[in-house]
Design a protein around this nucleic acid. Structure first.
Length: 386
DNA sequence: AAAGAAAGCGCG
DNA sequence: AAAGCGCGCTTTCTTT
């Protein structure tokens, strides 16, 4: 994958850079006007000075930081509505991030064929995942519409196409399997919307009555509570009160007793054996699990609870990639791996075959688990439309 | 001038 | 006192 590289359209990215730069300059001027003077938006210290000293925005509960108040997104959320500059900061930050990290940088790294060659590090992540550097191609934007435009600049060569295959709800499904939570497993096998189902059970209401906010809270729970998210963290993420968040978490674990038991078993192993491991035996040492420092110890517990799940995911992906490479032959080339997904470039006439190989190979990579994994496959001319 | 820490934020 | 896990990159600011 490193040698093959992935094709980009550098002209599109350069054009985006221009537009982002112009828009950024415009927003910058508006912010200077609001503040009454020019300052460096990229400097958290200067921005904090503008918000809390010059503009006198309320600092109650905004706290953080060693020297100045934090200006991170989580704190800006609390200030929304207090002053129009808040939205400008958010917009400016998004533009600067996309320009500096992606649209400016990527074209410079392409070879003479406009292909980018990342390095996949195999001995970096403590869980067994790959990581990607110089450039990191595992964090190309997708969550905002503007960001997704960058992903659309990743394309297939000539009349080829891109085929992506990603595991559906990989971590949650593995958690259900490793914890042997039959109720959760049945939900997955029944193609139930797991976040809606969780909300329905936690709130004790029919699935059809679950509101968007309730589903969103359940989604945060499903991803976060597994690894030790606190009532404080859940409240901050969903807008619930601390008390509501605590009740929600209590209700969740009484509902998912097998998950609770699996986490407890994992922590017990960390304490007695000094390591935790994946389903296939990849280990992560856990020396800090016995630290006398509460923060260090609590952090080690969250990391230990997470590793068997994230690590097993990594193990499965690596096995799948090897088998995919074998079965693909000359039909197409794997070009990227993004933790739970594989991206393949292939001639259009092979697309259906490639898609089938990806789907069946990934879904059937671990029959010993006794549970069917689900894979979603998609084909297109660029990465953004997949 | 180079190296490192902090803050912030992109992804799974 | 502080409260999901795993990464890498850019900028600012400080230290060497």
């Amino acid at each position: 994958m490193e040698r093959r590289g992935v094709l980009i359209d550098p002209d599109t990215l350069r054009q985006m850079s221009d537009e982002l730069g112009q828009q950024h300059a415009k927003l910058e001027q508006e912010m200077y006007t609001m503040a009454g003077y020019e300052f460096n938006i990229g400097s958290p210290a200067q921005l904090s000075e503008v918000l809390f000293t010059k503009l006198q925005l309320p600092t109650t509960g905004i706290k953080k930081g060693k020297t100045s108040f934090s200006t991170g997104q989580s704190e800006l959320d609390k200030l929304r509505g207090e002053h129009p500059i808040i939205e400008l900061i958010e917009q400016t930050r998004e533009l600067a991030k996309l320009k500096n990290t992606y649209t400016d940088a990527l074209p410079k790294l392409a070879d003479e064929h406009n292909r980018i060659h990342t390095t996949f590090n195999q001995d970096v992540a403590a869980t067994g995942r790959l990581s990607s550097t110089n450039p990191n191609l595992q964090n190309i934007p997708i969550r905002t519409e503007l960001g997704r435009k960058i992903r659309r600049a990743f394309i297939a060569d000539g009349d080829k196409v891109l085929v992506s295959a990603d595991y559906s709800q990989f971590e949650l499904r593995l958690a259900a399997i490793l914890a042997n939570d039959e109720s959760l497993i049945n939900d997955f096998n029944g193609d139930v919307d797991i976040h809606t189902k969780t909300a329905s059970e936690v709130y004790g209401i029919p699935m059809d009555d679950v509101t968007k906010d309730q589903r969103r809270a359940a989604k945060v729970i499903n991803f976060g509570v597994l690894y030790g998210m606190s009532p404080h963290g859940l409240a901050a993420n969903t807008g619930m009160s601390f008390g509501q968040a605590k009740d929600f978490i209590d209700q969740y674990f009484s509902l998912r007793a097998p998950i609770r038991a699996f986490i407890d078993k994992t922590l017990a192993k960390a304490r007695t054996d000094g390591y935790v491991e994946t389903y296939y035996g990849r280990r992560r040492p856990t020396p800090d699990i016995v630290s006398s420092n509460f923060m260090v110890r609590a952090g080690a517990e969250r990391a230990a609870a997470n590793m068997p799940i994230q690590g097993t995911e990594a193990d499965l992906m690596k096995r799948a990639m090897l088998k995919v490479e074998e079965r693909l032959g000359d039909l197409g080339d794997q070009v990227l791996q993004i933790h739970d997904s594989i991206l393949v470039e292939c001639p259009e006439e092979n697309a259906q075959k490639v898609a089938d190989i990806l789907e069946t190979t990934m879904e059937e990579i671990a029959p010993e688990l006794g549970i069917k994994l689900r894979v979603d496959v998609s084909t297109g001319k660029n990465w953004g439309e997949l």
